[in-house]
């Protein structure tokens, strides 16, 4: 769940140094051209070279092979859009889409609200502020797999802590892995535990750029704290919100590690694929069934899904606080 936020910045070419004299001897011409025109591009090239090798090339390669029936035995058969039409009528693919979107909603909506409230609390004058701010970020340093392993034990059917606590209140044990909604909730809590603090720190940074005089003016006008939060803080946070929401959309729709670890490293996502995400579906098709073309097609559909999801969320978030 991370995006390279430096991507935009890296493309800004450094300003070339001013020329010392308008004329140079012709022998120096090439070197000076190299210095002034080529060097900046050479200096920024590593990022783009790496992106070319690990970003653009796999994207193109995947697109190319999504047009083939390409399996382990080496058969390469042109099918055109055959993989895509098959995917769109494949119940297992749609099941994965529903799971992914469902878990995304269950995980992300409370996560962002919680992060917002947490950031608001951290923005106040409280004792040991630095320590608390660092504390909420702490879950982020743990590895996803470690988080998933621990949570999987907490959510154990027979010996898990959570069922034990539920049992104290007389509830029957829940088979968290067997049923769809409980499994989604279990996985969502893993995601939220790790990412809520991260998002709240981003929100906090955004909040600190809001000019104080707005709040002072509002106080003089008699606006309550709550009103100030909804009328000033939230609308002013819109750019931050867009970043956080897009970031969570990309992360949420490519969800893989938590549900996979939850089912003991098996990408089937539950005995009946109750919590198989699209990413897991892709790995299952590509590296369990060895249907590379089909998996490539699914990967491109996931890319489209993220594009649409991001766009929808962007439009939604842009309306926050009304269009003034």
């Amino acid at each position: 769940m991370s995006v390279n936020v430096d991507a935009g910045r890296a493309s800004q070419a450094p300003i070339p140094p001013p020329r010392s004299s308008p004329r140079r001897s012709s022998g120096l011409g090439f070197l000076s051209w190299l210095d002034l025109k080529a060097a900046p591009y050479l200096l920024i090239s590593p990022y783009f070279l790496l992106f070319l090798v690990f970003g653009i090339f796999p994207l193109g390669f995947t697109l190319w092979y999504s047009l083939f029936k390409y399996d382990l035995t080496g058969t390469e058969e042109w099918t055109g859009l055959g993989n895509y039409t098959a995917l769109l009528s494949d119940g297992a693919f749609w099941n994965a889409v529903v799971n992914t979107v469902g878990m995304f909603l269950i995980a992300t909506v409370p996560q962002i609200l919680l992060a917002l409230l947490l950031a608001n609390a951290l923005n106040k004058r409280i004792r040991g502020r630095l320590l608390v701010r660092m504390g909420v970020l702490l879950p982020l340093v743990t590895s996803v797999v470690a988080v998933a392993v621990v949570f999987t034990q907490l959510y154990g059917r027979d010996w898990g802590l959570i069922n034990w606590i539920l049992g104290l209140f007389g509830a029957d044990p829940i088979d968290w892995k067997a049923q769809r909604i409980p499994s989604w909730i279990a996985i969502s809590t893993m995601i939220d535990w790790r990412w809520t603090g991260y998002n709240s720190i981003i929100f906090l940074a955004g909040m600190q750029t809001i000019p104080k005089d707005l709040y002072e003016a509002a106080s003089i006008d008699g606006a309550s704290r709550r009103r100030q939060f909804w009328q000033i803080t939230v609308p002013m946070l819109r750019p931050t919100m867009i970043f956080v929401v897009l970031n969570s959309t990309i992360g949420g729709l490519t969800l893989f590690s938590e549900p996979t670890t939850f089912f003991g490293g098996n990408v089937h996502g539950g005995t009946n694929s109750q919590f198989q995400t699209v990413s897991m579906f892709i790995v299952e098709q590509g590296f369990r069934e060895f249907d590379y073309g089909y998996a490539s097609g699914a990967a491109w559909l996931l890319f489209l899904m993220i594009l649409i999801g991001s766009l929808v969320n962007f439009l939604l978030v842009r309306r926050i606080g009304g269009n003034k």
Partner: peptide, 19 residues
């Protein structure tokens, strides 16, 4: 191996109630 894997998922699924 692939078929066995697919079938055993179902054989477990009737047991845990998801199918």
């Amino acid at each position: 191996a692939q078929v066995k894997n697919a079938i055993e998922s179902v054989v477990s699924a009737i047991d845990d109630g998801s199918v």
